[in-house]
């Protein structure tokens, strides 16, 4: 029921089109690339030519091939990190919002403490100590995002748990799990989904930032964030090598952002009038 209404909104459709366009480039790119991403086929910082429409980068890789191959890592890692944060944070927040006693205090306290750390510093700390395996990066980014999800899920759950239909379920004697997942969860899903879209955007930014700082995907693998870092020295000679990956990251972030906002706006209108 909700899906049809979401797609009827022009902003949601625009966001979906932009996002899926970038996703398509990233997913199908490796097959479309004319060269291997690590093959050195041209001059260092070579300008665009007929064979290489975007030119070459700091080692003479074909920029177009690297661009087409470098999106997958950013996308899967950001989706994985955001999903992990959503699942863990959502469950903990739901539990905290419904239990409202010691458990709530413990979970909220832990979330507040970890919110005090700046996200990027926390991630840098863990990655620089434990290494730069992709799963570890995903995990640390998810850890950085989880407290925010907990706060959101808890706040929404508290508002819903006070409503009469939840009390009616308690009075009927339904089990706690049933109340949590049947009565409360569906009603806080919308803000969580919107937050998921925002986290996707932040994750792309953070992962690219990590790559740029040299803590992300290891060279010589192609990665949009890494490409910005590698090619910054030649910014004046071959600006495309920096601007093209930056543009793709920006477009993806823009797409997910307006998609999330659109979903939020449509859902807010669903909210019925109360006298």
């Amino acid at each position: 029921m909700t899906d049809a209404r979401w797609l009827a909104d022009p902003q949601v459709r625009r966001g979906a089109v932009i996002t899926s366009w970038v996703v398509l480039v990233a997913v199908l790119g490796p097959w479309l690339a004319p060269h291997a991403p690590t093959a050195m086929v041209g001059p260092v910082y070579g300008p665009p030519t007929a064979g290489a429409p975007l030119g070459h980068d700091f080692l003479g890789h074909d920029l177009l091939s690297r661009l087409l191959s470098g999106g997958v890592s950013v996308l899967w890692m950001s989706v994985a990190a955001a999903t992990l944060a959503l699942l863990v944070g959502g469950s903990l927040g739901l539990l905290a919002g419904f239990s409202r006693r010691r458990l709530d205090q413990a979970i909220s306290w832990a979330a507040d403490v970890s919110l005090a750390f700046p996200d990027l510093i926390l991630v840098l700390l863990i990655v620089s100590m434990l290494g730069r395996a992709p799963w570890l990066i995903v995990l640390t980014v998810a850890i950085a995002f989880t407290p925010g999800v907990i706060r959101l899920a808890r706040g929404s759950a508290v508002a819903v748990a006070g409503q009469e239909f939840v009390e009616a379920a308690q009075m009927m004697g339904y089990s706690r799990w049933r109340i949590l997942f049947n009565e409360i969860l569906p009603n806080i899903l919308t803000p969580l989904l919107v937050h998921f879209g925002n986290m996707l955007t932040w994750a792309v930014g953070m992962l690219s930032g990590l790559s740029f700082l040299g803590y992300g995907v290891a060279p010589p693998a192609a990665d949009w964030g890494l490409m910005i870092n590698e090619n910054q020295a030649g910014l004046l000679v071959q600006p495309l090598a920096v601007l093209a990956p930056a543009l793709l990251i920006a477009v993806f972030a823009y797409g997910t952002n307006i998609l999330a906002e659109g979903i939020g706006r449509v859902s807010a209108r669903i909210g019925e009038k109360q006298p």
Partner: peptide, 15 residues
């Protein structure tokens, strides 16, 4: 059984 004051919040909007 108990019937609540506010009919607007007594039913789960998702069901």
């Amino acid at each position: 059984q108990y019937v609540f004051q506010n009919p607007y919040r007594a039913l789960n909007p998702c069901q």
